[in-house]
Design a protein around this nucleic acid. Structure first.
Length: 536
RNA sequence: GUCCUCGUAGCUCAGCUGGAUAGAGCAUACGCCUUCUAAGCGUACGGUCAAGCGUUCGAAUCGCUUCGAGGACACCA
């Protein structure tokens, strides 16, 4: 509909011999009395034409021709408001009923390969509530982009090498020794979570104290394997299924990290100082240089990460999206520098930073820390409130709000989560459809001609555009807001209008209408990983 | 100290490629179940969009300054 009006306006400008290079904007006004659609074109033209906007609007009005537009009004200071006949709404209603699960999809991302890397939590513990936010965002974005035709890979980078894995091994060993009533220290930077103790218990149960002389490699391998497994299972339950897991260890083998450093050196981006090898990233995007090879000849964390991103570039994506916590934001400049230094285009990489989730209990901030092992795990959250509520909750907010997660609220009054409001709309409709259902789509809808049905149909109509917008702007919460509003409009409609009646024709049309609403709710919720219930 | 992100109703948040009277939920008060699910609907209350200056026909939205919150500034990862 927007395009139709834009075309008509363009024709009109041609007729008036006005040059306007920008794209014409059409908006849906907040106030109903300002029309179904409106344009600020006349206001935009004031400068170039050096005329009063009302005058310009009038000229446009007099030369405007469009079949679908039933009425045009001009309002101060120069808005042109279009009133449109409602046929398109019914065409769209048919479309929903035919396309079903595909309603809202598009191919704007056709032939565009996107890699979204997220969660990527170290396998040194289990997932916590912060991962729940990043996970919900990343997976929802992937679903939305796929729906728009992008070729999406959801990827998890497994840090299964390096110092922290040593610490993991040592931590498990220490707990195992403890179990065997022997002394072994938990290292500086070690891990204190319950899951570590559980792993040690498992070893003890199976082998008693026969494994005391096992090398550290044993604990490391076991820890990574088991913890990653737990992580994957938790994610599965949270409805996230990664396409690719890339291991830091494997990347190291594939590229030989020294060859990456050599490449950087060849391109002139390294130098030696104080016995270490430095990366000259301050010449690119960073404020400071950073060390690649330490004085003791070991590599810093930066090197495998550079290699990993190099690998992602080699795999031929058109776009790479990384999702980090804001605590890693300093890291972005380093990464981009390395990409440039290796001869790739840093613009392809987009880093999304998510504000960390703060836990609040009894109006006080709960500190999460590795040392105390105190945090809320993803698993706890799912068990407590369910996947639907959790995913909905995290999909509601834009990434850059500093979000407080209220434990009391989550646990005690989960009904306050708006997911129930939306689910309720879905369940209500489902309940009616169990009473009566129709498949056959009429050529013409004749009885749905009151303001309430138009409101519902209009909301259903904009869904595909909302999806595109969410994909382009990479903002899944637009979907969440949309589906809430749709539920709201439906509830209002429902409370005022009877669906089933003696009027067979009207009943039939009403049924098809609410069926389309249900379909749209389902499609929208699916994009944020929520599965609505048939009954509540 | 330097750099990033944020500041919208009592609370939690939408709204930001500049548009018309800034929106929801929760909380508070009051209505609505003999009819398809009241986990619902409706009404009221609630705002110097942190503050100031600027750009513009027009600013919550863009720019600068100040204040406040969070984070980053390792030869840790």
């Amino acid at each position: 509909m927007k395009d139709i009006i834009i075309n008509a306006l363009n024709e009109c400008l041609k007729k008036l011999k006005i040059n306007y290079s920008e794209e014409i904007e059409i908006n849906i006004p907040k106030q109903k009395e300002n029309g179904d659609y409106s344009s600020n074109l006349a206001l935009k033209l004031t400068k170039t034409l050096n005329k009063n906007p009302m005058e310009i609007a009038n000229e446009i009005l007099n030369n405007f021709k469009c079949e679908q537009v039933s009425n045009i009004e001009i309002k101060n200071p120069g808005f042109i408001n279009f009133f449109v006949n409602k046929d398109y709404l019914f065409d769209n209603l048919k479309k929903v009923l035919i396309e079903k699960d595909n309603y809202g999809s598009s191919n704007i991302g056709k032939n565009i390969k996107v890699n979204i890397e997220f969660v990527s939590a170290n396998p040194t513990g289990i997932l916590h509530i912060g991962n729940a936010r990043g996970g919900a965002y990343g997976d929802s974005l992937a679903r939305i982009m796929r729906f728009c035709g992008y070729e999406v890979t959801e990827e998890y980078y497994v840090n299964d090498a390096g110092n922290q894995i040593n610490n993991l091994g040592e931590s498990i060993k220490a707990r195992y020794y403890e179990k065997c009533k022997k002394e072994y220290p938990i290292p500086e930077g070690g891990y204190f979570g319950n899951e570590i103790i559980e792993l040690a218990d498992e070893i003890y149960k199976e082998h008693k104290d026969e494994y005391l002389d096992k090398e550290i490699e044993y604990y490391k391998e076991l820890g990574v394997r088991k913890l990653l497994n737990k992580i994957i299972n938790d994610l599965k339950e949270y409805r996230i299924n990664f396409d690719v897991f890339t291991s830091e260890k494997e990347i190291g083998k594939k590229y030989n990290l020294n060859s990456i450093i050599e490449k950087l050196t060849e391109n002139g981006y390294t130098y030696e100082k104080d016995g270490a090898l430095w990366f000259k990233c301050s010449e690119l995007y960073d404020e400071k240089d950073h060390v690649l090879i330490k004085e003791d000849k070991t590599l810093t964390y930066l090197v495998p990460d550079i290699a990993y991103h190099y690998d992602k570039y080699n795999r031929g994506y058109d776009k790479l999206i990384d999702i980090f916590g804001t605590d890693h934001h300093g890291y972005v400049a380093r990464l981009k520098s390395s990409i440039k230094a290796l001869g790739n285009e840093p613009e392809k990489l987009e880093v999304k930073l998510l504000q960390l989730v703060r836990l609040v209990e009894n109006n006080e901030i709960v500190k999460m820390s590795k040392r105390s092992g105190k945090s809320v795990t993803l698993k706890d959250l799912i068990d407590e409130v369910g996947v639907n509520a959790a995913r909905y909750y995290f999909s509601k907010y834009s990434l850059d709000t500093q979000m407080d997660f209220d434990l009391n609220l989550a646990k005690s009054k989960s009904n306050e989560n708006p997911v129930y409001y939306v689910s309720y709309a879905y369940a209500r409709i489902s309940s009616i459809l169990r009473e009566k259902d129709y498949e056959e789509i009429p050529n013409k809808f004749e009885t749905l001609n009151n303001e309430d049905t138009y409101n519902v149909l209009e909301k259903v109509y904009v869904f595909p555009e909302i999806v595109k917008n969410a994909a382009i702007k990479e903002l899944p919460h637009l979907i969440t807001n949309y589906v809430y509003e749709l539920a709201n409009i439906f509830h209002t409609y429902y409370s005022k209008n009877r669906i089933l009646s003696n009027d067979e024709k009207n009943t039939k049309e009403n049924i098809l209408l609410i069926k389309a609403v249900r379909q749209t709710i389902k499609n929208a919720l699916n994009l944020i990983g929520v599965i609505p219930p048939e009954k509540m």
